[in-house]
């Protein structure tokens, strides 16, 4: 996907505000890091800065800087290449299929509450999906495990239906609370799948042992299934039972990918830059450790210690 500046232009006001915020946030970090008076060991409590977390600060600034740089570049209109994510390319096809079959679409936002980034990512994705569904005039069914998630999902979907010009199609009761208990929730969602036989099932968010129970039930009714989670243990289950799986970081990228908004895509590119930095450090660390053991050189040992300190 390549986004040219002529297709999307950043909103100048919002960009300026975002940049101002970024500068302010960076200033706070840098000011604290640079002022010697602030440095102190945790136990002495003579200063304000926790020197034990210097590494986290350095890495935080590097990664944040990379992401912000690409946000700024994207906002200035520079075209960015973003690789295709098959699972997200199929979203519209899945919604269209549900409309043709006259069956509902099931969206499961995972088990976590709103204090989990995965759930926020899922809500962002739900917003985009609801806009597509509103356009197709299909029914969206969202059973949730947490009351706060229900409130946020209702607000998000209602807004999507409004922006799609279909406020009348929004049904509040289709987004409802089921149970806080993990397997009571899984049993209820399984029941919904078997009774309503949705044409498409989306499992996007934080999932645990119920992932395969849900995905296999969805598979048994022949639904198109798209899943995504940042819980690595559940990924194999989703890969085995679903048509498409968003692996870890792809879940967080999904909203930006679907929005096609330049600054959002810029943050994705920044994420890739962060990955590049990680790869460089992994290779450098491996090479240094190997060299150190082979040569026993003092300089190599010292450089190796610095890299080790950074990731201690």
């Amino acid at each position: 996907m390549r986004l040219s500046p002529s297709r999307r232009k950043p909103h100048p006001d919002s960009f300026a505000i975002a940049l101002l915020r970024a500068v302010l946030a960076c200033t706070v970090f840098v000011a604290m890091a640079q002022t010697d008076l602030l440095f102190a060991q945790t136990d002495t409590e003579s200063g304000w800065f926790n020197a034990d977390r210097t590494q986290a600060l350095v890495l935080g600034i590097v990664l944040t800087g990379a992401i912000l740089l690409y946000v700024v570049l994207a906002a200035s209109g520079r075209p960015l290449f973003i690789r295709k994510i098959a699972g997200l390319e199929t979203v519209e096809e899945a919604v269209g299929r549900a409309t043709e079959m006259g069956k509902p679409i099931l969206y499961v936002p995972g088990l976590n509450d709103m204090d989990e980034v995965q759930t926020i990512a899922s809500m962002n994705l739900l917003g985009h999906l609801a806009t597509i569904i509103a356009g197709y005039d299909s029914r969206l069914h969202v059973p949730v495990r947490k009351s706060l998630v229900m409130s946020v999902a209702r607000e998000t979907v209602q807004q999507s239906y409004l922006s799609a010009g279909r406020p009348d199609a929004y049904q509040e009761d289709d987004i409802h609370y089921v149970s806080d208990a993990q397997f009571a929730y899984a049993a209820a969602v399984d029941g919904i799948i078997v009774r309503e036989r949705p044409a498409a099932c989306f499992y996007l968010g934080g999932f645990y042992a119920e992932s395969l129970i849900l995905a296999e039930t969805g598979n048994s009714i022949g639904a198109i299934q798209i899943a995504g989670t940042a819980r690595p243990p559940q990924l194999p289950f989703f890969v085995a039972a679903c048509d498409y799986t968003l692996i870890g970081e792809e879940l967080f990228a999904a909203s930006a990918y679907l929005s096609k908004e330049p600054r959002m895509l810029g943050s994705l590119k920044g994420q890739d830059a962060g990955k590049g930095i990680a790869i460089v450090f992994i290779l450098a660390g491996s090479a240094l450790a190997t060299l150190e053991s082979v040569t026993g050189n003092e300089t190599v040992r010292e450089v190796s210690q610095i890299v080790l300190w950074l990731f201690r």
Partner: peptide, 15 residues
């Protein structure tokens, strides 16, 4: 990295 990028988008009001 995804969490950092998403958190930044949220904190900065992009998302």
């Amino acid at each position: 990295l995804g969490v950092i990028a998403t958190s930044l988008r949220i904190i900065l009001g992009i998302e």
